[in-house]
């Protein structure tokens, strides 16, 4: 930089007041979520003997792994200032497509997986095209994709679930096996979370997603290719949803067109609890994962504590509103 190397001006000397921001690895939202989770877990350990057992913990984690992958996708979309209502349906579509290709068409399972991933990318590209080129709102476009993907899943299976049987031990191993004692699905989720969290924090390209979500006009004026970012994010979201669908197939050995119903709302809840904002520009992957874990934990607690099933529906909503309200109040105090 060559500006003002020879400071021959009479500008008042830098009067900046700088105090050290507290150097925590996580933002405030993530730290508080982690704390809440720890407290809840501790309370549960005392309240029911069945909680702090290996099997219960693993079950809960496996149970949330598919929702977790979808939440990673949804978080990225929300940070960009968009929304993807089709994630659950693309999951079902991918699960069914891979199943149909492997069983009815008789393809090699890995080839089926590859084709399914391509199909997911196409679905995402379609959404991306309509949002960037045609200018439809993401809400409407992904709502449409939600119906289309789900419909395709029904058409492919004619409504009945498809049973894979034992198509390929390797494929089943991915969905049902463990490595070093940890179920593969959990490992995959952790891997994806780490990768994308790193990318969102450090990659220059992913950083642009934050800029676009924070102020699209300013991003455009700053030379960021907004259309390309949007397109890419929707493709990524569909790809991750497709991956989740394939893993669902691997886990259960059954392709059902009814999989993933309601996943999009759970993903939005998890992402928002974890710090994402519906207006874009904010949110982290780790936060979203913590959000999903918190909701799953509370649901688990309800079952173990034998709370009536009717309460379980309320849980996600209550946790969501509580988390967002607490954060809003804390935010208010900080900035005032």
């Amino acid at each position: 930089m060559n500006i003002m190397e020879k400071s021959e001006t009479n500008i008042s000397s830098s009067r900046k007041i700088k105090f050290k921001p507290f150097k925590t690895l996580f933002s405030i939202r993530e730290a508080s979520l982690a704390t809440i989770i720890l407290i809840t877990a501790t309370a549960m350990t005392f309240l029911t003997p069945g909680f702090m057992t290996r099997s219960n913990i693993l079950t809960t984690l496996i149970g949330l792994s598919m929702d977790g992958i979808i939440t990673v996708a949804m978080t990225i979309v929300l940070v960009m200032g968009g929304i993807d209502l089709g994630v659950g349906s693309v999951l079902a579509f991918a699960s069914v497509l891979a199943g149909v290709l492997a069983i009815k068409v008789g393809l090699n399972i890995w080839l089926a997986v590859f084709i399914t991933l391509l199909a997911s990318v196409s679905a995402g590209s379609l959404v991306g095209y309509f949002v960037t080129r045609i200018g439809l709102s993401p809400f409407i476009t992904t709502l449409g994709m939600m119906s289309i993907a789900r419909g395709l899943a029904y058409v492919l299976t004619k409504g009945s679930p498809l049973s894979l049987g034992v198509i390929s031990p390797a494929f089943d191993y991915i969905g049902q096996g463990s490595f070093l004692g940890i179920p593969n699905l959990i490992l995959i989720l952790i891997l994806l979370v780490l990768i994308f969290d790193f990318l969102m924090r450090r990659s220059a390209v992913f950083r642009q997603i934050y800029y676009v979500g924070s102020n699209e006009k300013a991003a455009r004026l700053s030379g960021i290719n907004v259309d390309r970012i949007k397109f890419g994010v929707y493709v990524l979201s569909a790809l991750l949803s497709g991956l989740a669908g394939i893993l669902t197939l691997a886990r259960f050995g059954v392709a059902t067109p009814t999989a993933g119903v309601g996943a999009e709302l759970r993903a939005i809840a998890g992402a928002v609890i974890g710090g994402a904002s519906l207006s874009g520009g904010e949110g982290t992957i780790i936060g979203a994962l913590l959000g999903v874990i918190l909701v799953a934990l509370v649901n688990d607690a309800l079952i173990l504590l034998n709370v009536s099933v009717y309460w379980q529906s309320l849980v996600t909503g209550i946790v969501l509103i509580a988390a967002v309200t607490i954060d809003m109040l804390a935010h208010h105090r900080r900035t005032s």
Binding site: A204, R207, Q208, Y210, Y211, S214, N215, K217, A218, A219, L221, S222, G223, I224, S277, G281, E282
Partner: peptide, 19 residues
């Protein structure tokens, strides 16, 4: 509306056009 990313940090704004 057109220049700054209000929700983002000072440093993020400074590097926005030249990552």
């Amino acid at each position: 509306n057109l220049g700054l990313f209000l929700t983002m940090s000072v440093s993020a704004n400074v590097v926005a056009a030249n990552l």
